[in-house]
Each structure stands twice: as structure tokens, then as C-alpha cells.
Design a protein around this nucleic acid. Sequence first.
DNA 1: TGTCAATATCCGCTGTAGATCATAAAACAT
DNA 2: ATGTTTTATGATCTACAGCGGATATTGACA
Lengths: 83, 83
Amino acid sequence: MNRIARTTKDLGHVLREARKIQNLTQADLAARAGIWQRTVSNIETSASGAKIDTIFDLLAALDLELHIVPRSKMSPGDLEDIF
Amino acid sequence: MNRIARTTKDLGHVLREARKIQNLTQADLAARAGIWQRTVSNIETSASGAKIDTIFDLLAALDLELHIVPRSKMSPGDLEDIF
DNA sequence: TGTCAATATCCGCTGTAGATCATAAAACAT
DNA sequence: ATGTTTTATGATCTACAGCGGATATTGACA
């Protein structure tokens, strides 16, 4: 997967998608990331207000990373899926 | 610029670099992002604990976006600079 | 070297994320 | 339709980010 995130909503959605692709439950991911299932649910539903540390914990648990790039005209989801 | 961020420290550093490349002061960027110069300073110095909404505000003000990609073996800074 | 601009840091306040644990509601498998 | 699993949400508590404004310190510039 290679997904664009410009808003907290995009980010929550991308994280849920990545988790599902890896066949994990919210509890599975929470355990890997060292946070509570409730926190995973909150972030996937609406990452708004979440702490960046928690986001990085989730990314690490999903074996993902952030690339910061100049804004493009693409819409989220346009990039090639490569999960 | 195309920078990898795997930690909050990477992210703070990338944001500072991007701001300098665009010849902006912390006050300039703060005004564009609708936050305080103090908050910009805090995040650039140590983004740990920052709120994701604030990060997105800064990215938007710098005309940047996040790509979430599978973790690679590269180290931050390895990608081509294209600012 | 002196001045000014930029950045880091100070204080107090408010709102809330995440931890914690549990459970209701929704989704899924049969 | 039923049982199980998964996800969303409830309550309470603590820690602290960001706001608001100011200023000390550091760095850049003339």
C-alpha cells in the first residue's frame, strides 16, 4: 500500500485498511503497538486529536513508515496499492 | 523533498528543514498554520506528544502531505531531495 | 562588536487523549 | 436464528498539548 493522507480522517482510514490487509483485529494491533484496543478503535474511527507518538506506535506495529512529500494533485487512494 | 519519518524526532526535523527551504520563520509558518510560534518551536524541537491535527496544519501550510508506505531499509534522508 | 530577528522557554489555564477495565452493539460464521 | 468474535462506547483519572502572551537566549546580519 502507498496511501496519501492529508487529513486525520484519511490517516485513520489508511490505518484501518492496512490492519485489515494484514488480517489483524484491533486487539491484535493494540497488543503489538502496546496500546489499548479502545485507542485503536478511536484512532481508526477519528484520528483527530490523537497523539503523534501513538500514530508512530501503530505504524511501527504495521511495519509502515511516513514519507513527507510535496503535495500532489492526486486524491487519497490514487497511488498504487502495494501491500 | 521526500523524507522518511519513522519517529517523532524525524518528523520534527523534516518539518524544520522544509520550513527553512521555503525561507519561512517559525512565526511565518505559525501564522499560515493558525497556531502559535511557540507550538512550531516545540514541534520542530521535539514533536513527541504533539497532536496529529497540529501536524496536519503544519503540513498543509508547507504544502506537503503524508504517504504511508511499507517500511523500507532506507534511513531517513536517503530519498531524493526534491523540494 | 552591536543590534535586531529568530527561536526557545517561562507561567497559568482549559480541554482532552490515553490508560484502565468493562460492556453494549455490530459483524461474522454457522 | 443463534453463538462467537470484533468493534464501538461508557466511566473515571492523570498528564500534558496548545492557547494566550511575554520574554530570555541564541543566532544572523550589518
